[in-house]
Design a protein around this nucleic acid. Structure first.
Length: 210
DNA sequence: TTCAGGATGCGC
DNA sequence: CGCATCCTGAAA
C-alpha cells in the first residue's frame, strides 16, 4: 500500500451523477473500492470501502425509511442523493450515503473500510487496538476511526470543501472480486431478511464478517 | 459463546 | 415514558 500522506491527494470526489443512477444495486457494486475521506482542519483520515449494504426506502422492511417514514431521524434519507445519513445504534454511530432522487429514500450503509490515510490518528481515536483490522471492521468502528458523528448529518459528500467526501482514487474492482450475501442484523425484515444486498471485497481482512 | 452498555427517538 | 435497535467490547 503506497503512502498518500506525502503526495498530492489523488482522490476525486464522486459526482452527483454517481448517486443518482436508477439501480441502487449498481451503486452498491460501484461503491466497493471507493474512498471515504474525512478532514478536520489539517487532520486527514481516509479508508477504502470494502463492505456495504443497500437499503431501499419504499418497500424494504429493513430500511429506516420504510419502518419509520419521514421523521426527524430519517429526514436525510428523503433528500437528494450525495449526502450523509448518520444514525445511532446503542452508543455507536453508523454512516450511510443517500442515493437517488428526492423522496426515494434509498441509502447505502458502509459496514467496513480498509484504512488508507492517517492510520496513526485512527489508532488514537480507537484507543490503540492490538490488531489493525479493528480500525475498520464494523459500521460503528469505522465511524470512530474517521470521527464520523451526527455533526455531519446531511453533509454534502460531493464537494472538495466538505469535511466528509466520497472519492474515487482509480482503484479497480472486477465483478469477480465482489461477494454478495444477506445483510447483517436485520432478521426482523421478513421477506427482505435474506436478499443479497450486502456486498464485500473478497479476501479482504477488514470485512466485518465472512 | 453470552451479555450488558447506555444513546436515540419512535410510538403508545 | 417504555422499549427495541442496520453494534461493540469484555468476560467466560
Amino acid at each position: 500500500m503506497s503512502d498518500y500522506n506525502s503526495k498530492v491527494v489523488p482522490f476525486v470526489p464522486l459526482p452527483k451523477t454517481f448517486y443518482l443512477r436508477d439501480d441502487i444495486l449498481d451503486i452498491l457494486k460501484d461503491s466497493i473500492g471507493k474512498i471515504i475521506l474525512h478532514k478536520e482542519n489539517n487532520i486527514i483520515t481516509a479508508g477504502r470501502i470494502v463492505e456495504a449494504e443497500a437499503y431501499i426506502g419504499k418497500f424494504d422492511k429493513a430500511s429506516h425509511a420504510y419502518r419509520f417514514g419521514k421523521t426527524k431521524r430519517t429526514d436525510a434519507m428523503f433528500r437528494e442523493g450525495g449526502i450523509a445519513y448518520i444514525f445511532n445504534v446503542h452508543k455507536y454511530n453508523q454512516f450511510c450515503f443517500v442515493t437517488n432522487e428526492e423522496e426515494v429514500a434509498n441509502a447505502i450503509l458502509v459496514r467496513a473500510i480498509e484504512p488508507i490515510v492517517g492510520i496513526e490518528v485512527m489508532m488514537s481515536r480507537r484507543g490503540f487496538p492490538k490488531n489493525i483490522v479493528n480500525l475498520g471492521n464494523g459500521p460503528g468502528i469505522l465511524c470512530q476511526s474517521l470521527n464520523i458523528t451526527k455533526v455531519l448529518y446531511g453533509i454534502d459528500l460531493t464537494s472538495y470543501q466538505s469535511e466528509l467526501i466520497l472519492c474515487d482514487d482509480g482503484f479497480e474492482v472486477r465483478d469477480d472480486m465482489i461477494v454478495k450475501t444477506k445483510r447483517i442484523g436485520i432478521d426482523y425484515a421478513e421477506e427482505y431478511r435474506n436478499v443479497n444486498w450486502r456486498y464485500y471485497l473478497k479476501d479482504n481482512k477488514f470485512v466485518s464478517r465472512k
